[in-house]
């Protein structure tokens, strides 16, 4: 295995949870809901995936548990903000804090236990392509899902009727409501999708990235995912670009250090963030295209008049 291949493999592992959590949040935000609880849903996904894997011995069941737990946990946020019309920013932050606390409690008995890794699945024929095969076609199912989800979300948002409705709800909930779209139900589903994706991202952490459970193991990745949604200007494929750019710079800086290039490590450590900011400035250079993509009702509460 060459060094380039090794670096790319690490990049894929590092970027996958970011892409997953971001693509979920992208759908949530496209429906006009700002859920800052990504970190909390992610860590809940991580702990339940690990716990169910330990109990059943099957990482696939664990993964499903992570997805389910993320989706369920997000419904708490949905109920508070959509039905009870609580402030989305405050509720999202509370969801993160609650998630970190509850996951710590749930995970207490699973500390220090050796994890079971979700095994890679080689795709016949494709896996034998030199270079690309081992990188892209000998991965675990969560990686395949992350790419499929991005493609699916792209198709859903821009090619399907339901996606058009979801975007309408995010852009002008009053108009969508007037046209007979059920705004609240659409948003409930969008939040649930966001939660499921964040839960899957969490499962990737505790089953693939570092197969173990430690409290607070998401270590801020939910926040990076949130930033990636803005970075992508709410376009699905740009989430992949952003996630992999961030991952690539994070991993390369570690290699640059190990190689002994003599560049200050504090500078190298801040590179992923700097690179993201630079690209963000370049992308948002054109204000008009940015505005077109920003969901106009983002974060605004909707109360249907009866």
């Amino acid at each position: 295995m060459g060094i380039v291949e090794a670096i790319l493999l690490s990049v894929i592992t590092a970027a996958t949870p970011l892409v997953l959590a971001a693509i979920g949040e992208l759908v949530t935000e496209r429906s006009g809901v700002l859920n800052l609880g990504v970190e909390g849903m992610m860590i809940m996904g991580a702990v339940s995936a690990f716990a169910i894997t330990q109990i059943t011995g099957s990482p696939v069941l664990g993964m499903l548990a992570g997805v389910l737990c993320g989706a369920l946990f997000s419904q708490l946020f949905a109920f508070l903000t959509l039905t009870l019309v609580a402030n989305q920013v405050a509720t999202g932050l509370a969801l993160t804090l609650l998630g970190i606390g509850v996951s710590g409690m749930m995970g207490e008995s699973f500390l220090g236990i050796q994890g079971i890794k979700l095994q890679p699945i080689a795709i016949p024929f494709l896996a034998d392509i030199p270079m690309l095969g081992p990188l892209l076609f000998r991965q675990d199912i969560i990686f395949y899902l992350s790419i499929a989800l991005v493609a699916g979300v792209h198709w859903f948002l821009f090619r399907s009727r339901a996606g058009l409705k979801l975007r309408a709800v995010g852009d002008s909930h009053a108009s969508a409501h007037a046209l007979g779209v059920n705004v609240i139900r659409t948003r409930y589903l969008a939040v649930m999708f966001g939660g499921a994706c964040a839960g899957l991202a969490g499962a990737q952490l505790s089953l693939v990235y570092t197969p173990q459970w430690v409290e607070n193991m998401s270590a801020g990745r939910g926040w990076i995912a949130l930033a990636l949604v803005v970075f992508s200007s709410w376009r699905p494929w740009r989430v992949v670009a952003g996630g992999y750019l961030f991952g690539a710079v994070s991993i390369s800086q570690l290699h640059a250090q190990a190689f002994g290039l003599g560049i200050p490590s504090q500078f190298l450590s801040s590179l992923p963030y700097l690179a993201t900011i630079v690209v963000l400035i370049l992308i948002s250079h054109n204000r008009r295209t940015t505005l077109i993509n920003t969901p106009a009702s983002l974060g605004k509460p909707f109360v249907p008049d009866r």
Binding site: I3, A6, I7, S10, A14, L205, Y209, T210, Q212, V214, N216, M217, A219, G220, R221, S250, I251, L254, H255, Q257, A258, F259, G260, S265, Q266, S269
Partner: peptide, 27 residues
Amino acid sequence: IKVVWANTWFDPGKEADAAKALVDQGV
């Protein structure tokens, strides 16, 4: 020895990445 500064005390993912980078470079 090769040194990698993770600039964190606690981040399993980042620590694992640093470990992989070092192993990939032959330690």
